[in-house]
Design a protein around this nucleic acid. Structure first.
Lengths: 208, 208
DNA sequence: GTCTATACCAAGATAGAC
DNA sequence: GTCTATCTTGGTATAGAC
């Protein structure tokens, strides 16, 4: 990625290669899609977040739909890469626990969990639906075939993941201090990484 | 509900009271919101599904936003009512299992699970966000205070619920026959109610 | 590679008749 | 209580210059 081939030497503020721009726009798109959902996102907001013009993001990706598909694909790659890294890296914790940690650490990739969750709810969409199903099945297969979980364990991890994504998307933290039942559920979800999570999670005052 | 006060006697095809219309439109709205999400839903599609005109649904609810809030409130009422009924009705199964079954049976209320899931992802929305958080906390409190679950049990039920909602929204059934990993996860989610579920679940060929 | 200007359409909301 | 007609906004996508 990001090999500079076309930019002439000596440019002070050189234009980026389209590869670099794609990556930059995709990161912005992931954050915005996560916060607003597929339909709720405007290509203009993505453009603003990436610091380019709206027609340019359409130009680069063809359409909002393809942009979403690309962001979704990137999110899944990031997810599986993080899972594989957690699996290979050895440590005192069992592999299954390391994978769970990795999932929570992915909070630092803005919009990842929420964009996946949004995609998962778009099963009725003619083109996003099938892509989302493939992605979901891919994660399941990772649990079963690469991580070596049995059906029950894979099931529990999936369920746990969905709950975590939900709590991120809900911005449950916003009410963390005022509501006892909310701090209770929060603690039950992040028994070990709570402080860490509270720092990384998006809040009401920031759009994403 | 639905006490007829204003319609004159003798009308053959009498106009419905606004209470009746509200209910009818809300049911339609729940189905459409579930399939398309909040932003993806048009008031016109809701109107068509309910058999009335688009301006009329806006007239009756004030705005699309209030319509969504009303549908969300109805979904939560239905959910908690079903849980309470399952809890009170005695049977051979443990209460906790009866509640789980009740959740799956709610599949017959079109769009309920998906609308809740969509609302949960809208935490960043200034008015839907807080409503969704209140609803989520309400369910948690039901588990803890009324159903008498401990934190761990409530947590597992929540997670399981989120996974089930995801699979409905994803329309995973659409690939049920072609993909081994999908039928595997499906069976692990609905060990006892599988046939029942396969009958009730929305498919790709129907919009909702 | 990136922008400005703009065409074009879809959708929420309002006015007002019946 | 319910409709038709319409105003208005906002958002995707295209044209075309630099």
């Amino acid at each position: 990625m990001s090999s500079v081939t076309s930019a002439p030497l000596g440019d002070t503020v050189r234009r980026l290669s389209s590869e670099e721009r794609r990556e930059q726009i995709l990161r912005a798109a992931l954050a915005v899609f996560g916060a607003r959902g597929y339909v709720g996102t405007t290509t203009d907001e993505v453009a603003k977040a990436a610091g380019v013009s709206q027609p340019y993001v359409v130009r680069l990706f063809g359409s909002k739909e393809s942009l979403f598909l690309a962001a979704l694909a990137m999110a899944l790659e990031d997810l599986l890469a993080a899972f594989r890294a957690a699996l290979e890296k050895d440590g005192d914790l069992p592999p299954t626990t390391r994978i769970g940690r990795a999932y929570v650490d992915l909070l630092r990739v803005r919009g990842l969990h929420q964009t996946l969750a949004h995609a998962y709810l778009l099963g009725g969409h003619p083109v996003i639906g099938p892509a989302a199903r493939r992605g979901f099945a891919q994660v399941w297969r990772f649990f079963r075939e690469e991580a070596g979980m049995d059906v029950d364990e894979a099931h529990r991890h999936m369920a746990e993941g969905m709950l975590i994504s939900t709590m991120i998307g809900l911005r449950l933290v916003d009410d963390y201090d005022g509501d006892d039942s909310i701090s209770e559920i929060f603690q039950s979800c992040f028994p070990t990484q709570l402080t860490h999570v509270l720092e990384m999670i998006p809040r009401g005052d920031e759009p994403w």
